[in-house]
Design a protein around this nucleic acid. Sequence first.
DNA 1: CCTCATTTGTACGTATGTATC
DNA 2: TGATACATACGTACAAATGAG
Lengths: 235, 235
Amino acid sequence: MGLLVQYRQIYEALRTQIVNGTYTPGDMLPSEHTLSATYHVARMTIRKALGQLVAEGFIVRRQGQRSIVKGTPKGIGILSIMSTTSALSHSDLSTHIIRKQELRAWSETLSFPVEEKERLAGCIYFERLRLLGGVPVFFDITQLPNMQLPRFPEYDLENRSLFDSLRTQYQIVVTGGTQQLFAIRADKRLQEYLNVRAGHPILQLNRKIETNRPDFHIYSQIFCVTQKYGLIGRF
Amino acid sequence: MGLLVQYRQIYEALRTQIVNGTYTPGDMLPSEHTLSATYHVARMTIRKALGQLVAEGFIVRRQGQRSIVKGTPKGIGILSIMSTTSALSHSDLSTHIIRKQELRAWSETLSFPVEEKERLAGCIYFERLRLLGGVPVFFDITQLPNMQLPRFPEYDLENRSLFDSLRTQYQIVVTGGTQQLFAIRADKRLQEYLNVRAGHPILQLNRKIETNRPDFHIYSQIFCVTQKYGLIGRF
DNA sequence: CCTCATTTGTACGTATGTATC
DNA sequence: TGATACATACGTACAAATGAG
């Protein structure tokens, strides 16, 4: 296991408590000193864990007062969908697999060049369509290197987030990335999948996502209809 | 001065050396131990400074080897323009002020609600058009609270970056933000400014940018033609 | 307005583990 | 294998911001 490190365990523990609602937005976490006592670690270890939570938007911290819980952030490097008009439950989002993950050659049309080690490892490829209340809102193509991911091709990406799977199964976490954005007109394939007329404006994102593994990047292309729902994300 | 803290001074020193080319991409920084000796500070202080540089993409760090310089990052929370076809000098980007910064009421059409303290402080508003090789590529509207920004209305935003000005003049640095993205059709105003035909796909970004000042956010709307130049950024 | 306890931020020193070369 | 360098972790001390009184 790669989870021996203490600050990581504490990070996971606190993170879980925020995600599952033990702490709700506006709540205050215990002080560094208190946490240090309860987990039996040095204050610096606690600070490291809290620093991670700050970086990912789970909490905010200000000198002189305790950490304030902000809740589960909307998209950490990822983008999530949000209604432009009314609040909408996240559970209304469903995923339809167009192509299940499979080994195939790297696409030639990526915005960002694949690194040598990744090219040699081969490519896991899949396509998904996301629907909100039955309406298709975005179509995405994901490619990632086939490196030390035992049993990955069997995972059900319909119900689980790719990023959650990578984090919990393989300790791969997103550390940042580069993205390129375009507004385009819908082509034939997009018209079909996204159910729009010819020439409808579509938001395209090409991204190279970096992780804590030095030579492991996720390459994705996302095509999104933003007429009714905007794409929202943190940076 | 807010720059008494040591790790911040060391951060600025190293950052400057990367930006001005003393260190070029691929170079290695001195080891933590060496830096600790040259600056006469503890290793932890060096680590804090290097951590900042990592977070902003100036360097990458891996256990067992020295810090590797990546160069000046393209857009930290900001977006910069990059040609989709060929490499293009950044100096070809020119800025045309449509409306110089002025005090006015907060716009009602922002994606993100303005915070109470900001609303009371009033709004500094300006509009700019960015051109690449003489071709307009994006039009942006920026609004920020009129809080402790002496002489700001006089600054020439044509030649200087807003973010550089805020950082060097007021020690305000971007810490993150939320953005909402849309693909839209060009309306009459955008057709005029961006020189496109009716209905041309336009990329719209609405963003709320957070800073190190607790109650100071920058609200911006960006409208971008991505036909020839993509919008690129880190997250 | 000032004081004081609490809490976080910065900084130092030291030790050990682990990855890279 | 050994030397180098970064990562984690402990302990301590003081500075600075916050909020309560």
